[in-house]
Design a protein around this nucleic acid. Sequence first.
DNA 1: CTCTCACGCCTAGCAACGCTAGAAATCGAT
DNA 2: ATCGATTTCTAGCGTTGCTAGGCGTGAGAG
Lengths: 192, 192
Amino acid sequence: MPIQARRERERAERARLIVTAARELAEAEGWDAVTTRRLAAEIEYSQPVLYSHFRGKGAIMAAVAAQGCADLAAELRRARTAARGTREALAAVARTYTSFGRRRPALYDAMFTHLVDLPFAAREAPAPLREAFAELLLAVEPAAAEGDDPGLLTETFWAGLHGLVTLTRGGRLPERAHEARLALLIGRFAGD
Amino acid sequence: MPIQARRERERAERARLIVTAARELAEAEGWDAVTTRRLAAEIEYSQPVLYSHFRGKGAIMAAVAAQGCADLAAELRRARTAARGTREALAAVARTYTSFGRRRPALYDAMFTHLVDLPFAAREAPAPLREAFAELLLAVEPAAAEGDDPGLLTETFWAGLHGLVTLTRGGRLPERAHEARLALLIGRFAGD
DNA sequence: CTCTCACGCCTAGCAACGCTAGAAATCGAT
DNA sequence: ATCGATTTCTAGCGTTGCTAGGCGTGAGAG
C-alpha cells in the first residue's frame, strides 16, 4: 500500500508546514499574533486541521521550541569549535547564546520561558535540548575548578546567561551595558 | 467638603482591595485564574468597576508587582542586616531572593517575567523596585573587586539569581540540586 | 465502470476572555 | 421634594482556544 505511505508523507509535510508557519509568525509579530485562526489561514487549511496534528496551541509551541533548541545547539557548536582557547570558547558560546536570545526573542521565549509542555529536566528531554546543553557543558567544563561538578557549574552558568537575556529583553535591565555584564559573568566563570 | 474626602478614601480602599484580591487569587491558583470576572466577583463588584481604578488587567498586575517588590525589598533588607560578614550577607540575600521566587511564584512572575507596563530600567522606576535593587547592591558591593563597577556587578548577580529561579520553576532545571547551584553562584561572586 | 463505504476536511458553534457603551440607581445639593 | 451629577450595573462586542457533526472526495470491491 504505497498510497497510505504517500498520505503519511503528506501529513508529516503539513505538520512541518504548521510548525514553520507558527515560528515565522511568532518571530515576525510575536506569540500574541499566533492565533489558531491566523495560523490556519497561513497554511491555507481550516482550524480543526491543526488539532489533527497537535493537541493544541501549546503542543505547536512545544514543536517550535524543539526546533529552536536544534538551531541554538548548532549555533553554539559552531561558536565553540571556531574558538581557540578555553576562555575564548566560553566567551564565544556565551556571546552566541545571549545573541540568540536577543536576536530571536519569540523563539527563545517558546524554548525557555513560556512553555511547560516539554519535559526538560527529566531524562526523556528532547534530543535537541540535550544537545544544546551539551554544547554549553563542553565550553564550561574545561574552565571548571578541581572540586566543582561540571554539570552543576554549567547549569549555574546557563542560569546567568538566561537571566541576562530575559531581564534585558523584558526591560528590567538597560540594553546599554549588556556587553559589560556579559564580560563580567564570563570572568566569574572562566576560572581566572 | 469632607464628604468628597471620604469618597476618595473609600475609592483608595477599594483599589487596595482589588490589588490584594488579585495577588491572593494569583498566588492561590495562578494568573490564568485571575480573570476580570472572577476578580470582580471576589471583590463583590461588577467588572467595569475594575476599569474605573485601573486601565486594564495589565495595570492591576503592575500594581501587584509593585507591592511584591516592596515585600521582596523588606525580606532582603532583613536578611542582609541580620547577617554578619560580607560573604554571609551576600549568601543570605541570595538565598532569600531565590526563596522568595520559589515560595511566591505568581508574585515573582508578575514582577519579573510577565509584565511590561512598568518602567523598570528607566530612571522613573517605581520606588519599591529601586529599593529591592538597592538591597542587592548593598550586599554585592562589599564583595566587589577593585576595578568592577558595583552596579553592573549587582545586575549580573541578579541575572544569575533570576535565571536560577525561573529555570528551576519552569522545570528546566531539576529542583534537587538548587542549593548546590546557588552556592556555586555565590562563590563566583563572593570575591574569594 | 459503478457502487459503497470510510476517511478527511470544513462549516458552524461553544464557553470564556478583556473590555466598553449606555441604562439604571444612588446620593448630595437646592 | 426635586434636580443633577456621579457611581454602578446590565448587556453586549469582538476575539480567543477548541470541538461536534455534516459533507464531499476518493480508494477498493464487484
